[in-house]
């Protein structure tokens, strides 16, 4: 009986190890451990043994049964993890197939630039204000120190609705409306749409966009104007960018300045973007002309200020390297999606 048991152990060990599926193992479990299986049979024959042998033989038979159970469990574990791995392998996918998603909408490039300009100035304490695009001659010209018959009107070819009403040629008109309605300090920027009677081509459009700024307070200096716009230029185009201020003429500022930034592409060495000069003109600015302050009833002995303006299209063309202004208004998705 003892040899019978040890043979049984060997037999079970080798046959279970040879099983290749958990189903086979289950079959072997029934074969070895089932009610008709050899171990059960041996245990049943226990009664025919001499009483002295029974405990030892009983222990041996139970050990054999436990051993077979352990072997089965081990084999099962081994096989099921193998089977699972196989199943997972069969579920493999081609991870290089294209992804599927709802398209995302993104901002128009002019929005991106306008938002960025507004963000920079609001972080410097400016308030965003807006005004009408259909404007009176007074707000668009006269209050800004551009009387009728002023040659500067040549630079502002205008679309008229009536003798006295036109599409605004700059957002400076908003400055006047703002100042009329409040006492200094005034610290505002006016983003918006403006119109000039220009044909549409690569660099011109009858409709374009500006952001203009105005700061009026006690003791504002040209040095403050330089500091404010230098800060803006660095945030907008990079911290290495330098600014230079050139005298210019705008009827509504005195002194007036055009602002150039050092070319952010070549660093000032000269390249295509800066036309070899190392500098790019980006802003017009100046100290608010006293006549403009007087037009809104401000005391020029107490208050002064500065104003500045920039073209959003121009900034966007520079920033993104766009060479044709018409792209902004054609709204070709192949263009717009490049700014996602």
């Amino acid at each position: 009986m003892e040899s019978q048991l040890s043979e049984l152990q060997e037999d079970a060990r080798s046959r279970i190890a040879a099983a290749t599926t958990t189903d086979e193992v289950e079959e072997l479990r029934r074969l070895f451990l089932g009610k008709k299986g050899p171990i059960t049979q041996i245990l049943r024959q226990m009664g025919s043994l001499p009483a002295g042998q029974r405990p030892a033989m009983g222990r041996l038979a139970n050990e054999t049964r436990d051993l077979v159970k352990r072997i089965i469990a081990q084999q099962n574990e081994k096989l099921s993890s193998q089977e699972q791995e196989t199943a997972l392998r069969e579920e493999h996918i081609d991870v290089t197939l294209p992804g599927c998603a709802q398209n995302l909408g993104n901002r128009h490039p002019l929005s991106i630039v306008m938002d960025e300009v507004c963000e920079i100035f609001t972080s410097l304490g400016f308030e965003i204000v807006e005004g009408p695009e259909v404007e009176t001659d007074w707000y668009n010209f006269v209050a800004l120190n551009i009387p009728p018959d002023h040659p500067a009107r040549d630079d502002h070819a205008s679309f008229y609705i009536t003798d006295d009403v036109l599409l605004r040629t700059e957002t400076s008109a908003v400055q006047i409306r703002t100042m009329e309605n409040r006492e200094p300090p005034v610290r505002v920027i006016a983003p918006g749409r403006v119109y000039r009677r220009d044909a549409v081509d690569r660099t011109h459009s009858h409709t374009f966009h500006q952001v203009e700024g105005l700061l009026v307070d006690e003791q504002v200096t040209f040095a403050d104007l330089k500091g404010t716009l230098d800060t803006f230029a660095k945030r907008m185009f990079g911290h290495d960018v330098r600014t230079t201020f050139r005298p210019h003429y705008f009827p509504f500022t005195e002194p007036s300045a055009e602002v150039d930034i050092s070319c952010f592409l070549c660093g000032g060495d000269g390249c295509g973007v800066c036309k070899g000069t190392g500098w790019i003109e980006v802003l017009g600015s100046g100290m608010v002309h006293p006549a403009v302050l007087q037009n809104v009833g401000y005391d020029t002995e107490r208050y002064n200020g500065f104003a500045f303006g920039m073209g959003v299209e121009r900034l966007a063309m520079l920033k993104f390297g766009i060479d044709d202004m018409r792209l902004f208004y054609e709204n070709d998705l192949r263009f717009l999606r490049q700014f996602a």
Binding site: C118, T122, G125, F126, E127, I128, V129, E130, P185, R187, L215, D217, V220, T221, F222, A223, D224, K226, G227, T228, D230, T231, T244, F245, R246, P247, P255, A257
Partner: peptide, 22 residues
Amino acid sequence: YDNIPVTLPSGVSPQAGEDDIK
């Protein structure tokens, strides 16, 4: 103009930023 220093204006504005509609 390049010899004029670079300073920042003083003061803070209670209205800084966007209004409700924006």
